[in-house]
Design a protein around this nucleic acid. Sequence first.
DNA 1: GCATTATCGCTACCTGGGTTGCGTAATTGG
DNA 2: CCAATTACGCAACCCAGGTAGCGATAATGC
Lengths: 210, 210
Amino acid sequence: MPERGPSRGRPRDIDVDRRILIAARDLLLVNGYAALSIDEVADRAGVAKTTLYRRWPTKDHLIVAVVALMQDDVPILDTGDIRADLTHYLHQVADGLNTVRRAGLPEGADDRSAGVVAEIAAAAARHADLGTLIRAVFARRNAMAIGLLASAVRRGALRTDLDVAVLFDQLVGPLYYRILVTGEPVDHPYLDLIIDGALRGARPSHAHPA
Amino acid sequence: MPERGPSRGRPRDIDVDRRILIAARDLLLVNGYAALSIDEVADRAGVAKTTLYRRWPTKDHLIVAVVALMQDDVPILDTGDIRADLTHYLHQVADGLNTVRRAGLPEGADDRSAGVVAEIAAAAARHADLGTLIRAVFARRNAMAIGLLASAVRRGALRTDLDVAVLFDQLVGPLYYRILVTGEPVDHPYLDLIIDGALRGARPSHAHPA
DNA sequence: GCATTATCGCTACCTGGGTTGCGTAATTGG
DNA sequence: CCAATTACGCAACCCAGGTAGCGATAATGC
């Protein structure tokens, strides 16, 4: 999201932003990160390359903006059944990641590729501002999930001596580990196993397992 | 590791390999991934750029080779105390990652950077062969750690109905999640919390906590 | 109306990853 | 000793990310 200064001088054409982002998204989903060229995006959007660089200082910045727009808000439901709520949440997050992950892969290609997700992580490492931005995008989502855990603790569904932030890491960490490091699939059965593992020791000792 | 064909023709100068790898390592540790240029590596090693590309087809391949050489074997000790063994293992892994992670950062820079680790993950995503290679490098190490868990299950220190692979993911996943995604520090206190969380539900129900 | 400010398109350019072609040096098999 | 084979250095080149300068256009404030 480019910052807008005071409204002096010729205003930016908002349609230009739109066309660039759409062109970039389309090319990213079809070709993946490496094969997406800035010149092609500019061509397709019908703008000059310099116009594009006036808005986003690097290719990384543009791609991150595109991916951020693709991240819909994940609605959290707090039904009171912590296992069901966590399952719903993790399934949503994983589905979103898997979509980005497969970008640029031919239909039916094997699942052992981190696709765009790894490029985003690398971009965040290359540019401090992108790291901040990306973390901000996910912060709300994460805060809501952690709130879910905290609420479960308050009503006695989880042990009171839990560090909910650590518990959260143990829920989502394996997911990113598979996508970014091992390349193994992150499907619903796997997520269920992760939830099992995280919840197993998180129940109060006097609670019944279900 | 370049494959060697039949010993026909002029043999490769092994000293050339050495000099390239050393030059690349030095420049990587000082400048980080992005600021390391192939031309500079070639200059510093005293070889032509083409000689370098005869051995590693891309910059990614060269860097991965360098980092792979930096990964010493982590000796696993199976003392029978699963918590102590896991602690020892995770501390070793995290220390190794943190070294690579800080590559290219000025001394005393904040810890919120994935440094080279994210570039390696991205390289693995870009080139299928590098993905295979990197996973092979870590496979032995991982297999030993999973063996540690399996052995603890066998002697009754951990529940018999555990999926040790999933438990392993829950131990190392948060570590990579922090390094690659959130940028938060991975220090020993954090690792201890992770081990606490993973082990809490993994004990047999009749076992004493220590 | 007019100076100011900022956008936009265009062209030319720099840089670094990666390739090609060629002349030459070093080795093996015969 | 000689042919085949491979390694090496060198120079020229292509491509894509990114920059600089300039003329034209569209808005603001006075």
